[in-house]
Write a protein that binds this DNA or RNA. Structure first.
Lengths: 185, 185
DNA sequence: GTCTATATTCCGATAGAC
DNA sequence: GTCTATCGGAATATAGAC
């Protein structure tokens, strides 16, 4: 893995553990055994670094969608596959979700991050809404409210679950996740 | 309102808009037209300031509980009253909830904030669990899963709703809230 | 691609005058 | 209770050597 990729991974780590304003270039460089200036070579400004982290999440989400289309037969499986994104965050030493982290510190963020962030959230909500709508039409899901409302509930519930897990423990996460799934069928 | 109270309110404002690491004593003092040193007089360390904000939230929650006991007849009303805490955050220029803000930046927080934060979350979950259990026993609520699970879902769903609202708009918040309530009855 | 060195700004915090 | 003044440190960022 290249230094650039390692930096990107560490930035992602810190954003999801400390928030955008809770880490510095030095935090990253010291872990890699390099100097803070070397990080600036790869990502001149912190805003660009964060922007790349968002882009990476966008690609990751698109990969999930692609895999779901290819491999998953049922709509339940598609939703479950999507939720593995959150599972992975929990496993990675209790990370909160990327969107929740940015949203929470939004007013102290470089304004340039706003648009890519909104695009990512919109893409996720749009896809999940579609899956829920199709799953309901296929008779697989039976839930109250519109698919869009349900998609919003699932996203916010899972984001909150990761945050609650940081304080009360991981059992909370699994309980919330199972309820969100149970309320679908 | 005393300067000390004004500082506390501003700290609360910044924590819920910028996160703990997204504001400085100077940010607070400049709004009040005083100097950063004057803020240090009232709250010598930033950790203490944040601690007082948490304490204030604890008191606010206890007031809600007390009012619910006195005024609310139905369990639905008690839950609704509790959720006005989140409504107020939405109205205050889209604040995220205090717990969500701290949880998101937890690894970049002074360790001393951990215990009071956990106590606040535990108190909220405990009370909400009780209300849900009693409401179900009274035949007012009909939900899947245990009251404790449902309480965790409501808290995390509402926290996430405030965050999603910051990115996609306030309609998201109301849709999520109404779904959480509808899924109770 | 990583380094040293440095500029600049900001932050948390303290001492002591008023 | 608020001020001026200041300290030590850390953060973002850049210039230029290797």
């Amino acid at each position: 893995m290249s230094t650039k990729e390692k930096i990107l991974d560490l930035a992602e780590h810190y954003i999801q553990h400390n928030g955008y304003n809770g880490f510095s270039y030095h935090d990253i460089s010291s872990v890699l055994g390099i100097k803070n200036a070397a990080v600036h070579y790869h990502f001149p400004k912190k805003e660009e670094l964060a922007n790349e982290v968002i882009k990476k999440a966008q690609v990751q989400f698109e990969n999930i969608v692609e895999k779901a289309e290819v491999y998953d037969v049922t709509y339940t499986d598609k939703v479950r596959r999507f939720l593995t994104i959150y599972d992975n965050n929990l496993r990675k030493e209790n990370r909160v979700c990327l969107i929740g982290s940015f949203a929470t510190n939004l007013d102290a963020l470089p304004p340039g991050l706003n648009a890519p962030l909104a695009a990512l959230v919109a893409a996720i909500k749009s896809w999940l809404t579609m899956v829920l709508a199709q799953g309901r039409e296929a008779g697989e899901f039976h839930f109250r409210g519109s698919p869009g409302q349900r998609a919003a509930l699932i996203c916010s519930g899972m984001a909150g679950a990761l945050q609650l897990a940081k304080i009360l423990g991981n059992e909370e996460y699994y309980e919330i996740k199972s309820q969100l799934l149970n309320d679908l069928v």
